[in-house]
């Protein structure tokens, strides 16, 4: 019994040690961002001796970083809204309608999930260029309008809503659109929330495609702006860390307030 208690104590100690190791990079990021001249004239320490917000003033005062934050927020909100809307509509179509080619179309939707963006960057780039959408927000928004994963996830949620609800509403004279908006959507709120969080996170963190499309300074999203900040301020670690803090903070807030949906959203698809 005693040895059991001992192993248990050891296990907990190891888990806490590991957790500290996981958190340390975040803590160190914050500390560095508060240490003016870190890496050059100052060395950060666990308890900052003279914390200052200099790095944040440099970041927002001398670079276009504030604009990048706005760009990322705006794009993430628009893309999330579009993906939730288009996915919910299609999910309802697949769950409640019978039409020729339904099986084939659903299979094609699923197949598109197997095609990673990394495979498409060259042809998508020329397509956007021909449409005149390089250095335009639309170049990022348009290819992200639909999500096959969202359709798949929401279709499963709608399948759990009893068809009798639809039928009762039909007898009461409700049309398809009314049934969709007033009966089906409210009943699949948790799935909508999970997918919305997933969409927001993917858009907020996405890098490769915005890097290719949004090259002009004022148009860059946060990750792209951070990457170029690294090119310009390679040794100003306090400024770079301030940028990282700004990029991580909103996701952290979302995680604290909607942990369940964030975990489901981040793991549900298994795709990042």
């Amino acid at each position: 019994m005693r040895s059991r208690l001992l192993t248990r104590g050891l296990l907990v100690a190891l888990l806490i040690l590991g957790a500290l190791a996981m958190v340390f990079p975040f803590v160190w990021t914050l500390i560095t961002s508060l240490t003016s001249g870190a890496g050059l004239s100052a060395t950060p320490s666990l308890i900052p001796e003279d914390p200052s917000l200099d790095a944040y003033f440099t970041l927002f005062g001398t670079t276009n970083f504030g604009r990048a934050v706005l760009n990322s927020v705006g794009l993430a909100v628009i893309i999330t809204f579009l993906q939730v809307a288009t996915s919910a509509l299609a999910a309802y179509g697949f769950a409640r309608f019978d039409f020729p080619g339904k099986r084939v179309m659903f299979a094609v939707y699923l197949a598109t999930m197997m095609i990673p963006i990394q495979v498409l960057i060259v042809p998508l780039f020329t397509q956007m260029r021909d449409m005149g959408l390089i250095n335009s927000y639309w170049g990022v928004i348009l290819p992200s309008t639909a999500s096959a994963f969202g359709v798949f996830l929401l279709r499963q949620a709608i399948a759990t809503v009893p068809r009798e609800f639809d039928e009762a509403a039909t007898i009461d004279g409700a049309g398809r659109v009314r049934i969709f908006t007033t009966i089906v959507l409210p009943l699949i709120k948790p799935a909508l929330a999970t997918f919305a969080v997933f969409g927001f996170m993917s858009s907020w963190n996405s890098f490769l495609w915005p890097l290719i499309v949004l090259r002009a300074d004022g148009l860059k999203t946060l990750p792209v702006a951070l990457a170029s900040l690294q090119g310009q301020h390679a040794t100003q670690w306090d400024v770079l860390m301030a940028g990282s803090v700004i990029s991580i903070l909103p996701m952290l807030a979302l995680y604290v307030f909607a942990q369940k949906y964030v975990v489901q959203g981040a793991t549900g698809s298994g795709l990042k």
Binding site: F99, Q127, T145, A148
Partner: peptide
């Protein structure tokens, strides 16, 4: 009924065709 179904699908089917399937052939 069929036409309504296609209307529900169109907002996602068109972008998936235009920005995933079509560039896949392009690649």
């Amino acid at each position: 009924h069929i036409a309504t179904a296609y209307l529900f699908l169109a907002p996602s089917a068109i972008p998936l065709a235009a920005f995933v399937l079509y560039p896949m052939f392009g690649a």
